[in-house]
Amino acid sequence: MKTKIFFSVAIISSLIIFFVLFKGLQNTNIYTPQVDVKKDIPYFEAKIFDSDIVKNSNEIFQKENFYLLNIWSSWCAPCRYEHPILLKLKDQVNLEIIGLNYKDNIINAKKFLKELNSPYRLILSDENGIIAIEWGAYGVPETFLIHNKRIIKRYVGPLNMNSIIEIKKFIE
């Protein structure tokens, strides 16, 4: 009797473990932070690209309209791919695109913009990557859609045509 009870307990617990591991197999093992959280924008101070003027986040995002903060760098290949798509958003009335130049060499960055055109209304520079961390970013490129000092949408990795459509919907 005792044996049977122990046996069934052992069987049931191993079945549970089996089930959990089975379920676990279907999850990905690569961690990505949650991206669909709506948060207030972080406070930060940043130098404006190619100058010594320092601005803080309140000054940068003071208007009521939409902002698109794009983290980019001249050494990042996906940024190059993403660039024409950003340019398509350049003329949106309700939207200001702000670039955050991530850990870049200023000469290369300028060359990059000269070659591909600049979609940015304002470029901030993030020499050591700290501002990107304030935003919770962990790679380049990343893009944040901001309204009323709140992040309403975050894109990890390069933007594509679908994200453009989505962003346009948000703005309207």
Partner: peptide
């Protein structure tokens, strides 16, 4: 995951077998 699933099933077959024999 395909391989994982197979090893998992095999592993638990062996566990059941040994539990059975043990008890």
């Amino acid at each position: 995951p395909e391989r994982g699933l197979y090893i998992l099933i095999f592993l638990f077959c062996l566990i059941f077998l040994s539990l059975f024999i043990f008890f």
